[in-house]
Design a protein around this nucleic acid. Structure first.
Lengths: 212, 212
DNA sequence: CGTGCGATGTATCGGACCGATACATCGCGG
DNA sequence: CCGCGATGTATCGGTCCGATACATCGCACG
C-alpha cells in the first residue's frame, strides 16, 4: 500500500522523506492517521533497491561554494524512474480484492486521477460489494444474535451498520457519476445545481502542473 | 489490542481458538474485518506464558473410554486466570492515548459493559477530541489546500469529513447519556419513546449469564 | 548575547498484526 | 464411499507502527 502511494506521489514531483510524509498525510488524511517513518524509510529503501526510484543527495543549488564545514547532512531527494511509473501502472491494473479493504480502497481512490475509468468502476463496484457484505453481517448480528450481546456492543454495531449504509449510498452515487461520463463530485443535496461546468472533467493521464 | 479483547472475551466463558475468533469477529464486526490466526495463536501463546490464561487439552467428557486410536488431536480450551482478570482491569484503567485511535477505541468500547463509568467517560471524551482534531485537519485541507488536490482526492476528504462530523455527534450523544446516569442506547430519532425501562442499565461488574 | 525550543530532517529496532499456507478431523449429501 | 465444506490448530514471511535517537536551523524570550 505504502509502495503504491509513494510511487503515485513521486509522479507529481521529486521529494525527500519528510516532505513525502507530509504530502501523504495531507492526501490520505481521510483514511489513515499519518505514515510512520518506521515504514516510510524502509519502504523507500526497498523501492530504490527494486529500481523504481532513485535517491540523490541534495546539491546546494549553485553548488561548490560552502563546500564542507559541518559537513551538512543533506536531504535525500527521491525521484521516480521509468520502471517505477510502469510498476505503478501495473499495480493499478492488478487491483485485486485487497484493494477493497478500508485502507487499500482509500489509497487507490486517492489516486483515481491517474486511473483509467474502467478500473475506477471496477474498484468502486468491488468496494461496494465488500461493504454490502459487511452490512449484511452486521444486520445478521443485530437480528439473530442480539440478545447475546450487551447494550454497548449493540450500539457499536448499529453505528457501524449506519456507516456501511452511508458508504454504500456514497459509492452508488460515485458509480452512477462514473458511468454517466465525468465529474467525480457527488452533487450536494443542499446546494441546488451550483456552478459547475468548465472545472471538473479530468480525463485520465496527467493531472496537475509540475513545477511552479 | 488483541490481548485486551481475548482477556475480555474469556471472562464470559472458556473457549478454544476457533470459537474465540468467531466471537471476536461477531463482537468487533463493526470495527475490523476478522482476526487472523497468524495473530491469534501467537498471542494466546504469549498470554499463556505471562500467566494470564491457562491452556487445557479437552477431556472427552466422561473420559477414559475411547482412549487413543487415531490419537484425536483435541481442541485446546483456554481459561482466564485471576491474574488475567487483574491484567484486564489494569489495561482498562490505563486507557491512554492509544485507546483513541480507530481500532483501539472500538475494542475498548465493545467491552464498556466491563468498564466503570468514569473510565467510559474518559475514553469517550478522548476519542471525541481525537476525531475533532482529525476533522479540523480535513477542514484545513479542504479550505487552504483545495486547489492543489484533484477532484477525487477532494471528494475523499469530503466523505471523511462527513464521517468525522457524524461520529462527533454520535459521541456527544453517548457522553450526554453517560453523564445522565444510564443506558448506552442513543435515542433513535424515528422511534418515539419506545419501551425502555427494566432492560438496559448495566451497572458495571459482570454482565451476562455464564453457561446456558 | 546566548540559549533553549519547536520545526525540519534522517534513521533504526522491536513488536503487533496480516495473508497465505499446511494439515487433520468430522458430518453429510450425492 | 467419496468428496467437500465446516471445524480446528499452527507457522512463516512480510508490512507497518510506536518509540527512540540524533543533528540542524531559525527565532523568540530573557
Amino acid at each position: 500500500m505504502l509502495e503504491f502511494a509513494i510511487l503515485g506521489l513521486l509522479q507529481e514531483a521529486p521529494m525527500h522523506g519528510y516532505e513525502l510524509r507530509k504530502e501523504l498525510t495531507a492526501k490520505l488524511g481521510a483514511i489513515r492517521a499519518a505514515i510512520s517513518y518506521g515504514s516510510l524509510y524502509p519502504t523507500l529503501r526497498r523501492l530504490q533497491a527494486a529500481g523504481w526510484i532513485t535517491e540523490a543527495a541534495e546539491t546546494p543549488a549553485t553548488a561548490e561554494e560552502v563546500p564542507a564545514l559541518t559537513s551538512r547532512r543533506g536531504r535525500v531527494v527521491y525521484t521516480i524512474t521509468a520502471e517505477g511509473k510502469e510498476r505503478f501502472a501495473q499495480l493499478i491494473a492488478q487491483a485485486g480484492p485487497e484493494t477493497y479493504d478500508d485502507t487499500g480502497f482509500g489509497v487507490h481512490f486517492a489516486f483515481f486521477a491517474r486511473t483509467d475509468q474502467a478500473t475506477r468502476l471496477r474498484i468502486l463496484e468491488g468496494r461496494r460489494r465488500k461493504i454490502e457484505e459487511r452490512r449484511e453481517g452486521l444486520r445478521d448480528v443485530l437480528g439473530r444474535a442480539a440478545e447475546r450481546l450487551d447494550a454497548y456492543t449493540l450500539e457499536l454495531q448499529r453505528h457501524g451498520l449506519d456507516a456501511c449504509e452511508r458508504e454504500v449510498r456514497w459509492l452508488e452515487e460515485l458509480i452512477a457519476n462514473e458511468r454517466s461520463g465525468r465529474a467525480p463530485t457527488v452533487p450536494q443535496p443542499g446546494t441546488a445545481g451550483g456552478r459547475r461546468d468548465n472545472d471538473s472533467p479530468p480525463p485520465p493521464g496527467e493531472s496537475r502542473k509540475e513545477r511552479p
